[in-house]
Design a protein around this nucleic acid. Structure first.
Lengths: 207, 207
DNA sequence: TTTCCCATCCCCTGAACAGGGGATTTTGTT
DNA sequence: AACAAAATCCCCTGTTCAGGGGATGGGAAA
């Protein structure tokens, strides 16, 4: 079997160095290049073939989301694995919409990175199942309320500073309806006012 | 000159591997050990001498803050460098209170890590000056309003869901005074209501 | 068909908030 | 002493919010 050629993109030297070290321990992987930003990544891709690009989601100037879109356009055969911290996982759906085939949290072990690479190389979708979550992070996952799509929509608009009448006007619904959603949000988050609601929503990375 | 013996503590394998790679490139550094948590770190410290411990601030079970306090108590000669992401920098003052002599952001280059190690080893305080901030992070630093201590206090209480009368009662001041602080907060954050205020405060990691 | 969830809509009420106006006192610095 | 910032306090007003109560209709799943 040919080795899987991989490019890693991250603006943190420490992460690049760590990935270099980890990938060097995987026998079926050949490191095609390390890139500190999207420009370098595209340059490496043009100069030498790669099978998989592992890229951070949040980067200065051109984000991982934009990079994924570019790669999908110019190198449709190249597979993409997105990487982020647990706190930043809410962007993963955008990465997938822009062509990513896998997702890894930065706390992933070498074994999980291996598994992700193999799965994605075989054409499967790989989603990180991180077992090293801190108890605080675990608690967060348990406590995040399930919101309907309308509730999410109203939550975002409240967080943007819009009043009930403004939201009603924007969504072409009654003021009473907005108020109902707002009350449901307060109940679901178990809070008594908007301040607490927004604080919790921010804590859960919903806004 | 003797080599500086260093232990690195972080629950992310990728970061540990990255630090191993970077430290191996620094001639005056000897890696005394890698630890995935505070327990391992203390075990390594007891088994072999180290000059500096570089530890992540946020870790499961026993945080970097607690670890720093333990190290200061049991190994007062060992210097501590705290590490965090840019978003988590608000905890650095606690690390320093618990004995840390230096602070590095995780986006630091190998050169800056070198400099931090040398400074701290010479007994100086080292604070990371990260030049690779994303433009979004830079904008955040520029836009964070200067709050008085009372304003900060009131902000936290508002974010906790307390009403003006409740805050007034808690702080032994007039309802009008609380309202004044609240209005000043709205002005300083350039927002029109509490929802926006809390969202911004969360964005700036003030709550 | 029944049940459940979601979206929509309404009522009443008092508390809370935000926009505007103003003031005095205290504290810290030069 | 002079000055500026912070803390404290007050007024008026209308809007908004939150707590409580209720309803109907549509769509999906069992």
């Amino acid at each position: 079997m040919d080795k899987i050629r991989i490019i890693v993109v991250d603006d943190h030297p420490m992460v690049l160095e760590g990935m270099r070290g980890m990938l060097s321990q995987i026998g079926f992987v050949e490191l095609a290049g390390l890139a500190a930003n999207a420009y370098e990544a595209m340059t490496i891709l043009k100069a030498s073939a790669a099978d998989i690009v592992i890229t951070d989601i949040n980067m200065p100037e051109i984000s991982g989301i934009e990079l994924a879109a570019k790669i999908r356009t110019e190198f449709p055969k190249v597979k993409i694995i997105a990487m982020s911290t647990f706190k930043e996982r809410s962007y993963i759906s955008q990465m997938i919409q822009n062509g990513a085939s896998g997702y890894l949290v930065k706390s992933a072990s070498r074994e999980e990175i291996e598994e992700a690479i193999l799965s994605v190389h075989e054409g499967k979708l790989y989603m990180s199942l991180d077992v090293s979550l801190s108890s605080a992070d675990k608690q967060e996952m348990v406590n995040v309320p399930m919101l309907s799509s309308r509730e999410k929509e109203v939550l975002l608009l409240i967080a943007d500073g819009m009043t009930n009448p403004q939201i009603a006007s924007k969504l072409f619904i009654s003021l009473h309806t907005v108020d109902s959603h707002r009350k449901n949000l307060l109940t679901k988050f178990s809070v008594n006012n908007t301040a607490s609601l927004i604080k919790q929503a921010a804590k859960f990375n919903l806004i």
